Simulated scan of single mutants.
Amino acid sequence: MGGGQARAGALMAVTAMMSVQLGMAVAVNLIEDIGSDGTAWLRLAWAGLLLLVVVRPRPSAFTRKTFGMCVLLGIVSAAVSLFFMASLDRLPLGTATALEFLGPLTVAAAHGTGRARLVWPGLAAIGVVLLSQPFSGGVDLKGVVLALAAGAAWAVYILLTQNVGDRVAGVTGLAVSMPVAGLVATFTVSPAVFERMTLHILLVGLGMAILLPVVPFVLELLALRRLTTAAFGTLMCLEPALAFVVGFTLLHQSLGVSAIIGIFVVVIAGVGAARSGGRQADMHIEVG
């Protein structure tokens, strides 16, 4: 069962990553119109509204503790989005994504067991360094700090998402956390964003919200029911590679030799994590 769960979880995680990067490609262009804070707010607000309408969570689905966890997950989800969108205003998509994934790498190293605890995260860390190329200089320092802050928030997000997924049935938890994330983002957005809002931007934001975060957050929640936090944290390091591919094909960002080598390194680490990271038991607890 562990192997089957690992493969299913890995497939869900990879699909989520593809959706994320397509959504990020849309977001990079949207930042030019409404800024990074407006872009983060628009996608979170749409995502929260969509999940509320589709899922329609009932109070009976939660205990006081699980509801509080969902609210906290929403706050952390907003932090991930706000920090990362702000970093995209200063860094290329691939570089920002690679730096952000130091958060999942930390989770992987902290929760792994045996040699796999350090081997796969260590290999992925090498790949992230090759992708981000910190030794080349010329990287915006504030952008780096913002991407690292997004990574720290993402590490917390992984732990909270697995906890919520184990204790709240289906995607009900996301129907609470996403509206909370949208509300948090509303308090950070500049008033000028609303003045620049058009029907076209609203529709683009709707499509972006479906790609990021609705589809990936749902898939990640389901994947974390099938993978250990260590395997998930390492497997998600495939995303910097996907970010470079999307940046190259859709945003016309060039790839150097070091970045190409880094792609292969993180792919190998992600495959290794997926093969060894199935959860040994179904820990999902139905509530309500």
Rank of each mutant, 00 (worst) to 15 (best):
M1Y: 10
G4K: 13
Q5N: 09
R7V: 11
G9H: 01
L11V: 14
M12V: 03
M12Y: 11
M12C: 14
M12G: 04
A16I: 04
A25W: 02
N29R: 15
I31V: 14
G38A: 06
A40L: 06
L42E: 03
A45N: 05
G48W: 00
L51V: 13
F62G: 06
T66M: 05
G68P: 09
M69W: 07
M69I: 13
V71R: 04
L72N: 05
F84Y: 15
F84V: 06
L99S: 09
L105K: 05
L105A: 13
G112E: 03
L118S: 12
W120P: 07
W120A: 01
W120K: 00
P121M: 09
A125G: 14
A125T: 13
I126G: 15
S136V: 14
G137I: 14
G138V: 12
D140S: 14
D140R: 09
L141Q: 14
V144P: 10
L146K: 10
A149H: 02
G151D: 07
G151T: 09
A153E: 07
N163G: 10
V164C: 04
D166K: 12
D166R: 15
A169F: 06
T172E: 10
V176T: 07
V176Y: 06
G182F: 00
V184D: 00
F187D: 01
T188M: 14
V189H: 01
V193E: 04
E195K: 06
E195M: 13
L199G: 15
M208E: 11
I210A: 15
L212P: 01
V215E: 05
V215S: 09
L221Q: 13
A231Y: 04
T234I: 00
M236D: 04
P240W: 01
L242K: 02
F244I: 09
V246M: 06
L251P: 05
H252Q: 12
Q253F: 03
A259F: 00
I260D: 08
I261C: 13
V266E: 04
V266G: 08
G270K: 00
V271R: 01
A273K: 01
G278C: 08
G278E: 09
H284C: 09
I285D: 12
V287Y: 08
G288W: 04
